[in-house]
């Protein structure tokens, strides 16, 4: 029984009314935070909207417990600067790192397996500096730490995955929303390519299935989709400022399919335009239909 089922059950049986006071209050708290499936925050400051979105989603302590080892997984795959919108916004990443530590996380780790040179991707994205000053452990991928993992997916049966993400207590996925010629858009589900070892380029042969396989296996505690700046063409690395659109938006959710489905609307598309979102809904990974979701929009 997941949280959603619990709520339905609670509503049906009126259990909330029947239980004693203390538990009632607990249920009420859960219900208050559960009401929301996605928070969409809009505002000029990337760090303020990130914090506001997470707060409106029930606060970081709903997801991070004292003593947790947290992996915060941004997209920093490219040798590009923040203005080019190819990597996750460094302020968004830094804010999540800060909130994790405030919630008592023991250690926050930040890494990605870039496509371009890792040193340049880490530095030029601005993420290394922003996260490290807040005490995050920003490390480069250590090839020895990949292990062949059976994930028994549809397209991917077994693949070398980065053990540091598998060993973490909690994972927070912080992708950026961008154009991509095959996936059309890349958001949270495609961000898992950054923890794949080996010749991950092969998964483009069955991209949608592969992304759903990975997303089902990795199960982040929270997803924060950065749409402060989005890349509307020539993705996933762009380069021209004319392809960058400033949306000043951050989307927070747990359901990866829902996050990506909402993300599509930022580009004038629908979730159903994206193969991996459709497949994600079909296979029960999450909800694509936005009308079935409780989306809370806030401005700061």
């Amino acid at each position: 029984m997941d949280r959603r089922d619990f709520l339905k059950l609670a509503a049906l049986t009126g259990a909330g009314l029947a239980v004693p006071d203390g538990i009632n209050r607990f249920a009420g708290m859960v219900a208050a935070s559960e009401k929301v499936d996605l928070v969409v925050a809009h505002g000029a400051s990337p760090s303020a909207i990130t914090k506001a979105a997470i707060d409106a989603f029930g606060g970081i302590s709903r997801f991070i417990s004292r003593g947790d080892i947290v992996v915060v997984k941004p997209n920093m795959a490219w040798d590009r600067v923040p203005e080019q919108a190819a990597n996750t916004n460094p302020e968004v990443v830094a804010t999540v790192v800060r909130l994790c530590y405030e919630a008592g996380a023991k250690k926050v780790k930040v890494f990605d397996r870039p496509v371009n040179d890792p040193r340049r991707a880490y530095v030029q994205s601005g993420i290394q500096a922003a996260a490290a000053t807040l005490g995050a452990e920003v490390s480069h991928i250590d090839e020895r730490r990949f292990r062949d993992i059976r994930i028994n997916g549809v397209a991917i049966k077994e693949w070398p995955l980065y053990t540091e993400i598998l060993e973490a207590d909690k994972i927070i996925n912080i992708p950026i929303a961008k154009h991509h010629s095959l996936a059309k858009l890349t958001m949270s589900m495609k961000n898992w390519m950054g923890v794949m070892g080996g010749s991950r380029n092969m998964i483009h042969q069955r991209l949608d299935e592969s992304l759903v396989d990975l997303s089902r296996f990795l199960k982040p505690a929270l997803t924060v989709l950065d749409a402060v700046r989005v890349l509307t063409a020539n993705g996933p690395q762009g380069g021209s400022s004319s392809d960058v659109k400033r949306l000043d938006t951050v989307i927070v959710g747990v359901d990866q399919v829902a996050v990506d489905s909402f993300g599509a609307t930022l580009f004038g598309m629908k979730g159903s335009d994206l193969g991996y979102v459709r497949l994600g809904e079909k296979t029960g990974l999450g909800i694509m239909d936005l009308s079935r979701l409780n989306i809370r929009k806030i401005s700061t």
Partner: peptide, 21 residues
């Protein structure tokens, strides 16, 4: 792959770094 083997692949385009690919 897309020419000779009817298999999707876009990697060369994905990684091409020029602002207009």
């Amino acid at each position: 792959l897309p020419f000779a083997h009817a298999t999707p692949c876009i990697v060369c385009e994905e990684v091409c770094p020029t602002p207009k690919k």
